[in-house]
Design a protein around this nucleic acid. Structure first.
Length: 284
DNA sequence: AACCAGGTGGAGC
DNA sequence: GCTCCACATGGT
């Protein structure tokens, strides 16, 4: 990966062998992006970026917050090394080849938490719609008619009825409860520097956060890579490779034991691979 | 018209 | 600890 800063708001990305915008954004970790004529618009908190694919392995990143998005896309991590380590698992071979351009985004903890509470027993298209509604109605305007993700202060003003109008359904009271806990002093950011299991336990005390959602927050929002979120797709993959099992806690234990510190990334490769293969493009 | 979607909370045992 | 079940919403 070769990064060249062209000016204050443009960066050229070359030799992007382990980065594909489309794959990364469509791997179900981010719910605030849209594709419009070969260009991707990406939003995180109050920040906006546009990524245009110039040619094979070559992109132009445009943003007023270049440094933020260089970190966001995890460009300083060498994914070749990780892929090499994972190649020793024969059954990962196809997924590694297929999902090679997927990276783990470094998202904001609060935004990740709220989005993944909404994600439970839901589909990506509808999650995106609900999150967009919440930003447009309760976030501050930023640029080009876009809206920021609401701050905690702004989130605290949203009622259960408002969330229902956003299409959140029965998860509405979970959100209200969790936001209240945050306002009462629950410190999300300090979970970054805590042992993974301890941070996980803390997350599980929040309403609407179970094992799977907790793992997603740890992985996408708090920088913990030794977690393996088990959702419906990963459960299918598990049955393909490790045999019949219905208990997701047991799946999770076995997967972490197998992939160790590479668990989070292995999971993301497998999720993208399985969902794309089985779903095609119908749910985007 | 059942079944599914990046599951969780709660009751009952 | 564990197993069942209800849960809104929109799409196949």
């Amino acid at each position: 990966m070769k990064l060249t800063k062209l000016n204050d708001c443009e960066m050229l990305i070359e030799e992007a062998d382990t980065f594909d915008v489309k794959q990364t954004l469509e791997s179900g970790q981010l719910f605030r992006f849209e594709e419009k004529n070969n260009e991707f618009l990406v939003q995180s908190l109050d920040k906006v970026a546009k990524i245009c694919r110039l040619s094979d392995k070559k992109y132009l990143l445009s943003s007023k917050n270049l440094n933020y998005f260089v970190n966001f896309f995890d460009f300083s991590t060498n994914y070749d090394i990780i892929i090499t380590r994972l190649e020793k698992f024969e059954y990962l071979k196809e997924a590694l080849k297929f999902s090679r351009g997927v990276r783990i985004l470094k998202q904001a903890p609060l935004e990740t938490l709220i989005c993944f509470i909404i994600s439970a027993n839901n589909n990506i298209k509808r999650i995106k719609k609900s999150v967009a509604y919440i930003c447009e109605h309760f976030g501050s305007p930023v640029e080009d008619g876009l809206f920021a993700f609401p701050t905690l202060q702004q989130l605290s003003l949203i009622t259960e009825d408002d969330f229902v109008k956003a299409g959140i359904g029965y998860r509405a009271p979970y959100l209200v409860k969790t936001i209240q806990m945050l306002c009462d002093g629950f410190d999300l950011d300090c979970l970054k520097n805590m042992p993974t299991n301890q941070a996980r336990e803390k997350l599980l005390t929040l309403a609407g956060v179970g094992p799977k959602v907790a793992d997603c927050i740890l992985l996408f929002g708090l920088g913990h890579k030794q977690v393996f979120p088990v959702d419906t797709w990963i459960a299918k993959v598990y049955n393909d490779f490790f045999g019949a099992e219905t208990n997701r806690t047991k799946m999770n234990r076995k997967l972490i034991e197998t992939f160790g510190d590479d668990s989070g990334i292995a999971q993301q490769y497998l999720f993208y691979f399985k969902r794309e293969k089985e779903n095609g493009r119908k749910n985007l």
